[in-house]
Amino acid sequence: MDSNIKRELMIENFENPFHKESKNGKEFIKANTYNASCIDNIDLYVRIKDGKIYDAYFDGEACAITISATSLMVKKIIGMTLQEARNFITEYYHMVNFENYDKTKLGNLLIYEDIAKQPSRKKCALLPVQALEKSLEICEEGGKNDK
């Protein structure tokens, strides 16, 4: 993908992030992730219903890469089954780690395909999926899964 297009998409999602709002209702699973070495800190709010991600939001303070990646991820995961979400997480990790991955699973998040070339920014791009992983764990541990 052209680097200008990638950059524009990141800036657009940083300046006008999708579903950036705290959701403190009981129906949402809240998962926080932060970077120990810097100041990115986000909360992901996921509502799981009938085995699917019914809705998702996020909030927090973070750099352009973390905010844009979280915004794009939130858009992407709404409507996914839990298995699809797990597959998405796996493919995203593969992409960021320069391993073989299925491009069809990642949509616009492909714009972070080269992020690990800047090692200090890799952790910024991983925060949203780490939050999603945590949310799924909470759900599996008997958390909220509205029937």
Partner: peptide
Amino acid sequence: DKIFAEDTANYLNHYHICVRAGN
């Protein structure tokens, strides 16, 4: 204005300028 502190620090780092971003 409108730039997250860590992004500013990363930008300055590109020019070998070391500042601290955060709280």
